[in-house]
């Protein structure tokens, strides 16, 4: 395994562990307000408070606890949405590319329309009507993200479907399902795996953006986006409030992209050997 892939994987596992068990070990309630302790700076600054190493927000809530707990929502939404988006994209792309003809044109036409439709309007409208929750966010982000994966999958399927080894398989009696699962699905897997890593990064960012706009999870439950948003007006006096979720968000996206780059290179090399 390449060093970059190893570093990225290790970093992501660490982040996942931190947000999963970190809050339990810390034993601090991310929602507990402590107004006398409000706007405490991080540990290296004058006026820092013991027990709040990263400082507190305007309601005196511990920022370390909030960033860790907030990471649960952000990562859950990001990973779930990207996984679902790729899964939906693979199924749609496989069918579209394999069936071809008017079904293909219809599906890809809808995909183009879908991409042209402003996602934010959809998000605002939906959340305005049914309110926001983690499942709603995941659904919205999945709907926004499937088209890319579907397009890539379809392109590969169109090419592989014409290969002689698929013809040989049909000639030996393979049915549609066998061709799809044995030949086509494995052929699109590596490209989608790489794409998934990039979509994860985007999804974590978009969740942050939605929360920042007040369309994310309901307060007081934190996510990286809501903490960023909370700290927005206090940027000049309490810059550390947006700093921590911002850093966590940036680091996660960087690591995921590093993983994607590494995987792409690794899988590319393997495909070169075939040529």
């Amino acid at each position: 395994m390449r060093p970059s892939v190893r570093i990225a994987l290790a970093g992501l596992v660490l982040i996942a562990l931190a947000v999963a068990v970190g809050p339990l070990l810390l034993g601090v309630d991310a929602l507990e307000q402590d107004l006398p302790a409000k706007l405490a700076p991080p540990f290296w600054m004058e006026g820092a408070l013991a027990g709040h190493p990263l400082g507190t927000d305007q309601l005196g809530r511990d920022l370390l606890a909030r960033v860790l707990v907030g990471g649960r929502t952000s990562l859950l939404v990001g990973f779930a949405a990207s996984t679902l988006a790729c899964a939906v994209g693979i199924v749609v792309g496989l069918l579209s590319g394999y069936l071809g003809g008017w079904i293909d044109r219809l599906i890809m036409g809808l995909g183009d329309l879908w991409i042209a439709f402003p996602f934010l309007v959809l998000a605002i409208a939906t959340i305005g009507v049914v309110g926001s929750s983690t499942p709603i966010l995941v659904t919205l982000l999945t709907l926004a993200g499937w088209v890319t994966s579907a397009r890539v999958t379809r392109t590969i399927v169109k090419q592989v479907r014409g290969e002689d080894y698929v013809a040989a398989s049909v000639g030996a009696g393979a049915g549609h399902l066998s061709v799809l699962t044995r030949h086509l699905l494995p052929a699109v897997a590596s490209a989608n795996l790489v794409m998934w890593t990039f979509v994860v990064g985007t999804m974590v960012l978009v969740e942050g953006g939605l929360s920042f706009l007040g369309l994310g999870v309901r307060p007081p439950a934190p996510s990286w986006g809501t903490i960023l948003s909370d700290g927005r007006e206090l940027l000049e006096t309490a810059w550390w409030i947006p700093l921590w979720p911002g850093l966590a968000l940036t680091l996660t996206v960087l690591l995921v992209n590093l993983l994607g780059d590494g995987l792409r290179d690794a899988l590319d090399v393997r495909m070169d050997d075939h040529a």
Binding site: D164, Y165, A168, G171, A172, G173, G175, H183
Partner: peptide, 24 residues
């Protein structure tokens, strides 16, 4: 579907062995 069981009677050999074998 009806053809499937009869397929074992006739088989095809292709021109380019580099595209007629699944590389994976």
């Amino acid at each position: 579907r009806r053809l499937r069981p009869l397929r074992s009677r006739f088989q095809l050999v292709f021109q380019d062995p580099s595209t007629s074998l699944n590389p994976r």
